[in-house]
Protein backbone atom coordinates (compact mmCIF):
# COMPACT_ATOMS: atom_id res chain seq x y z
CA UNK A 1 0.00 0.00 0.00
CA UNK A 2 2.80 2.42 0.90
CA UNK A 3 4.31 1.85 -2.54
CA UNK A 4 1.02 2.84 -4.20
CA UNK A 5 0.73 5.96 -2.08
CA UNK A 6 4.32 6.96 -2.84
CA UNK A 7 3.53 6.58 -6.52
CA UNK A 8 0.50 8.84 -6.01
CA UNK A 9 2.70 11.43 -4.27
CA UNK A 10 5.20 11.27 -7.13
CA UNK A 11 2.38 11.95 -9.57
CA UNK A 12 1.10 14.87 -7.51
CA UNK A 13 4.61 16.29 -7.50
CA UNK A 14 5.28 15.91 -11.21
CA UNK A 15 1.82 16.75 -12.56
CA UNK A 16 2.18 20.49 -11.95
CA UNK A 17 5.11 22.76 -12.78
CA UNK A 18 5.94 23.67 -9.18
CA UNK A 19 8.75 21.11 -9.07
CA UNK A 20 10.42 22.74 -12.07
CA UNK A 21 10.20 26.32 -10.81
CA UNK A 22 11.42 25.39 -7.34
CA UNK A 23 14.32 23.49 -8.87
CA UNK A 24 15.11 26.52 -11.00
CA UNK A 25 15.16 28.71 -7.87
CA UNK A 26 17.45 26.21 -6.10
CA UNK A 27 19.83 26.09 -9.04
CA UNK A 28 19.78 29.88 -9.44
CA UNK A 29 20.52 30.49 -5.75
CA UNK A 30 23.28 27.86 -5.70
CA UNK A 31 24.82 29.32 -8.84
CA UNK A 32 24.60 32.90 -7.61
CA UNK A 33 26.17 32.23 -4.22
CA UNK A 34 28.88 29.95 -5.63
CA UNK A 35 29.75 32.62 -8.15
CA UNK A 36 29.59 35.26 -5.44
CA UNK A 37 32.02 33.35 -3.26
CA UNK A 38 34.56 32.82 -6.02
CA UNK A 39 34.10 36.08 -7.87
CA UNK A 40 33.99 38.09 -4.67
CA UNK A 41 37.35 36.82 -3.48
CA UNK A 42 40.03 38.98 -5.00
CA UNK A 43 43.20 37.01 -4.35
CA UNK A 44 43.83 33.44 -5.40
CA UNK A 45 45.67 32.68 -2.16
CA UNK A 46 42.70 33.85 -0.16
CA UNK A 47 40.45 31.71 -2.33
CA UNK A 48 42.61 28.66 -1.70
CA UNK A 49 42.03 29.04 2.02
CA UNK A 50 38.29 29.57 1.47
CA UNK A 51 37.61 26.44 -0.54
CA UNK A 52 35.41 25.10 2.24
CA UNK A 53 33.23 28.22 2.20
CA UNK A 54 32.88 27.96 -1.57
CA UNK A 55 31.71 24.38 -1.28
CA UNK A 56 29.20 25.34 1.39
CA UNK A 57 27.67 27.93 -0.93
CA UNK A 58 24.85 25.55 -1.69
CA UNK A 59 23.56 25.93 1.86
CA UNK A 60 24.95 29.36 2.68
CA UNK A 61 23.03 30.95 -0.13
CA UNK A 62 19.53 30.55 1.28
CA UNK A 63 19.02 27.51 -0.97
CA UNK A 64 17.48 25.83 2.03
CA UNK A 65 14.53 28.23 1.72
CA UNK A 66 13.10 26.81 -1.55
CA UNK A 67 13.57 23.31 -0.16
CA UNK A 68 11.77 24.35 3.02
CA UNK A 69 8.98 25.84 0.86
CA UNK A 70 8.80 22.64 -1.19
CA UNK A 71 8.23 20.67 2.01
CA UNK A 72 5.57 23.13 3.16
CA UNK A 73 3.77 22.91 -0.19
CA UNK A 74 3.61 19.14 0.03
CA UNK A 75 0.86 19.49 2.65
CA UNK A 76 -0.50 23.02 2.34
CA UNK A 77 -1.28 22.72 -1.37
CA UNK A 78 -3.70 19.95 -0.46
CA UNK A 79 -5.63 22.37 1.76
CA UNK A 80 -5.34 25.37 -0.54
CA UNK A 81 -6.94 23.53 -3.46
CA UNK A 82 -9.03 21.21 -1.26
CA UNK A 83 -7.38 18.16 -2.81
CA UNK A 84 -7.09 17.00 0.79
CA UNK A 85 -10.65 15.67 0.33
CA UNK A 86 -9.79 13.11 -2.39
CA UNK A 87 -6.51 12.40 -0.62
CA UNK A 88 -8.29 11.48 2.62
CA UNK A 89 -10.99 9.58 0.73
CA UNK A 90 -8.24 7.43 -0.81
CA UNK A 91 -6.29 7.18 2.46
CA UNK A 92 -8.51 7.81 5.49
CA UNK A 93 -5.65 7.55 8.01
CA UNK A 94 -3.98 10.93 8.49
CA UNK A 95 -1.00 9.10 10.01
CA UNK A 96 -0.50 7.11 6.82
CA UNK A 97 -0.82 10.26 4.73
CA UNK A 98 1.83 12.12 6.72
CA UNK A 99 4.09 9.05 6.86
CA UNK A 100 4.02 8.74 3.06
CA UNK A 101 4.50 12.47 2.59
CA UNK A 102 7.49 12.37 4.94
CA UNK A 103 9.19 9.67 2.88
CA UNK A 104 8.28 11.39 -0.40
CA UNK A 105 9.53 14.77 0.82
CA UNK A 106 12.77 13.28 2.11
CA UNK A 107 13.36 11.71 -1.31
CA UNK A 108 12.61 15.01 -3.05
CA UNK A 109 14.97 16.78 -0.64
CA UNK A 110 17.73 14.27 -1.41
CA UNK A 111 17.33 14.65 -5.18
CA UNK A 112 17.23 18.45 -5.05
CA UNK A 113 20.20 18.59 -2.68
CA UNK A 114 22.20 16.35 -5.00
CA UNK A 115 21.33 18.55 -7.99
CA UNK A 116 22.38 21.67 -6.05
CA UNK A 117 25.72 20.10 -5.18
CA UNK A 118 26.29 18.99 -8.76
CA UNK A 119 25.54 22.51 -10.01
CA UNK A 120 27.84 23.96 -7.37
CA UNK A 121 30.71 21.67 -8.31
CA UNK A 122 30.08 22.23 -12.02
CA UNK A 123 30.56 25.96 -11.50
CA UNK A 124 33.20 25.92 -8.78
CA UNK A 125 35.71 23.32 -9.95
CA UNK A 126 36.46 24.72 -13.45
CA UNK A 127 36.41 28.29 -12.14
CA UNK A 128 38.73 27.51 -9.23
CA UNK A 129 41.07 25.71 -11.63
CA UNK A 130 41.38 28.88 -13.71
CA UNK A 131 42.30 30.69 -10.47
CA UNK A 132 45.00 28.08 -9.80
CA UNK A 133 43.18 26.88 -6.70
CA UNK A 134 43.61 23.20 -5.98
CA UNK A 135 40.58 21.35 -4.62
CA UNK A 136 41.29 18.03 -2.96
CA UNK A 137 37.81 16.55 -3.34
CA UNK A 138 38.33 13.48 -1.12
CA UNK A 139 39.22 15.75 1.77
CA UNK A 140 36.09 17.85 1.11
CA UNK A 141 33.62 14.98 1.21
CA UNK A 142 32.62 15.93 4.75
CA UNK A 143 31.96 19.53 3.65
CA UNK A 144 29.83 18.42 0.71
CA UNK A 145 27.97 15.94 2.88
CA UNK A 146 27.08 18.60 5.45
CA UNK A 147 25.73 20.91 2.72
CA UNK A 148 23.74 18.00 1.31
CA UNK A 149 22.31 16.99 4.69
CA UNK A 150 21.17 20.51 5.56
CA UNK A 151 19.40 20.97 2.23
CA UNK A 152 17.66 17.60 2.35
CA UNK A 153 16.58 18.04 5.98
CA UNK A 154 15.10 21.47 5.38
CA UNK A 155 12.58 19.85 3.03
CA UNK A 156 11.58 17.62 5.93
CA UNK A 157 11.35 20.59 8.30
CA UNK A 158 9.12 22.31 5.73
CA UNK A 159 6.85 19.29 5.60
CA UNK A 160 6.47 19.43 9.38
CA UNK A 161 5.68 23.15 9.28
CA UNK A 162 3.12 22.58 6.54
CA UNK A 163 1.42 19.77 8.45
CA UNK A 164 1.22 21.89 11.58
CA UNK A 165 0.22 25.17 9.92
CA UNK A 166 -1.97 24.23 7.00
CA UNK A 167 -2.19 27.77 5.65
CA UNK A 168 0.46 27.96 2.93
CA UNK A 169 1.40 31.61 3.25
CA UNK A 170 1.46 31.56 7.05
CA UNK A 171 3.58 28.39 7.15
CA UNK A 172 6.18 29.74 4.71
CA UNK A 173 6.30 33.18 6.31
CA UNK A 174 6.60 31.87 9.87
CA UNK A 175 9.28 29.37 8.85
CA UNK A 176 11.44 31.87 6.99
CA UNK A 177 11.09 34.51 9.73
CA UNK A 178 12.20 31.96 12.32
CA UNK A 179 15.19 30.69 10.40
CA UNK A 180 16.35 33.96 8.94
CA UNK A 181 15.69 36.32 11.85
CA UNK A 182 14.30 35.06 15.14
CA UNK A 183 16.88 32.31 15.64
CA UNK A 184 19.64 34.89 15.31
CA UNK A 185 17.91 37.33 17.62
CA UNK A 186 17.78 34.57 20.25
CA UNK A 187 21.54 34.35 19.96
CA UNK A 188 22.03 37.90 21.23
CA UNK A 189 19.58 37.69 24.15
CA UNK A 190 21.60 36.74 27.23
CA UNK A 191 19.00 34.78 29.13
CA UNK A 192 17.76 32.55 26.31
CA UNK A 193 20.69 32.30 23.94
CA UNK A 194 21.59 28.83 25.22
CA UNK A 195 18.60 27.38 23.40
CA UNK A 196 20.16 28.49 20.11
CA UNK A 197 21.86 25.12 19.38
CA UNK A 198 18.42 23.51 19.45
CA UNK A 199 16.89 25.93 16.96
CA UNK A 200 17.01 25.44 13.19
CA UNK A 201 19.85 27.92 12.60
CA UNK A 202 21.87 26.58 15.49
CA UNK A 203 21.48 23.02 14.23
CA UNK A 204 22.42 24.10 10.70
CA UNK A 205 25.56 25.81 11.99
CA UNK A 206 26.45 22.71 14.00
CA UNK A 207 26.38 20.68 10.78
CA UNK A 208 28.25 23.13 8.58
CA UNK A 209 30.80 24.60 10.98
CA UNK A 210 34.41 23.80 10.09
CA UNK A 211 35.89 21.03 12.19
CA UNK A 212 38.86 23.32 12.65
CA UNK A 213 36.81 26.15 14.18
CA UNK A 214 35.78 26.19 17.78
CA UNK A 215 32.13 25.21 18.02
CA UNK A 216 30.95 28.40 19.64
CA UNK A 217 28.98 31.34 18.38
CA UNK A 218 28.60 34.39 20.59
CA UNK A 219 29.61 32.32 23.58
CA UNK A 220 27.12 29.54 22.84
CA UNK A 221 28.55 26.09 22.18
CA UNK A 222 27.06 24.37 19.15
CA UNK A 223 26.09 20.72 19.07
CA UNK A 224 28.13 18.09 17.25
CA UNK A 225 27.38 17.40 13.58
CA UNK A 226 25.29 14.38 14.57
CA UNK A 227 23.51 16.47 17.18
CA UNK A 228 22.70 19.13 14.58
CA UNK A 229 21.29 16.52 12.19
CA UNK A 230 19.23 15.02 15.01
CA UNK A 231 17.82 18.44 15.92
CA UNK A 232 16.68 19.13 12.34
CA UNK A 233 15.15 15.64 12.05
CA UNK A 234 13.35 16.06 15.37
CA UNK A 235 12.01 19.47 14.37
CA UNK A 236 10.63 18.02 11.13
CA UNK A 237 9.20 14.86 12.64
CA UNK A 238 7.73 16.43 15.77
CA UNK A 239 5.93 19.08 13.73
CA UNK A 240 4.74 16.41 11.28
CA UNK A 241 3.42 14.20 14.09
CA UNK A 242 1.70 17.15 15.77
CA UNK A 243 0.27 18.15 12.40
CA UNK A 244 -1.09 14.67 11.68
CA UNK A 245 -2.48 14.29 15.18
CA UNK A 246 -3.98 17.74 15.60
CA UNK A 247 -4.22 19.93 12.50
CA UNK A 248 -4.89 17.26 9.88
CA UNK A 249 -7.22 15.33 12.15
CA UNK A 250 -9.65 18.23 12.28
CA UNK A 251 -12.86 18.15 10.30
CA UNK A 252 -12.48 18.59 6.56
CA UNK A 253 -15.52 20.65 5.71
Amino acid sequence: MIGNLLRAEYRKFTSTQVWFWMLLVCVALTSAFTAGQIGGTKYDDELQSNVRDVLLSATGGFTYIPLFVLGVLSVTTEYRYQTITPTVLATPSRWTIIFVKTIATALVGIVYALICLIVELAIALPWLATRHVHVDLPSQVGTLASAFVVLALFALVGLGAGALIKNQIVAVTVGVIFVAFLDHIVLIIPGVKHIYPYLLSGATNAITVSPHDDHTINGVTLLSVGGGIAVLVVWGLVMAVLGAGITMNRDIT
Binding site: M1, N4, R11, P86
Partner: peptide, 11 residues
Protein backbone atom coordinates in the same frame (compact mmCIF):
# COMPACT_ATOMS: atom_id res chain seq x y z
CA UNK B 1 -3.72 13.33 -14.09
CA UNK B 2 -6.14 13.98 -11.22
CA UNK B 3 -7.66 10.57 -11.90
CA UNK B 4 -4.30 8.87 -12.42
CA UNK B 5 -3.22 10.03 -8.97
CA UNK B 6 -6.28 8.25 -7.56
CA UNK B 7 -5.43 5.17 -9.64
CA UNK B 8 -1.95 5.13 -8.15
CA UNK B 9 -3.27 5.54 -4.60
CA UNK B 10 -5.76 2.70 -5.05
CA UNK B 11 -3.33 0.44 -6.88
Amino acid sequence: NHLRILCAAAG
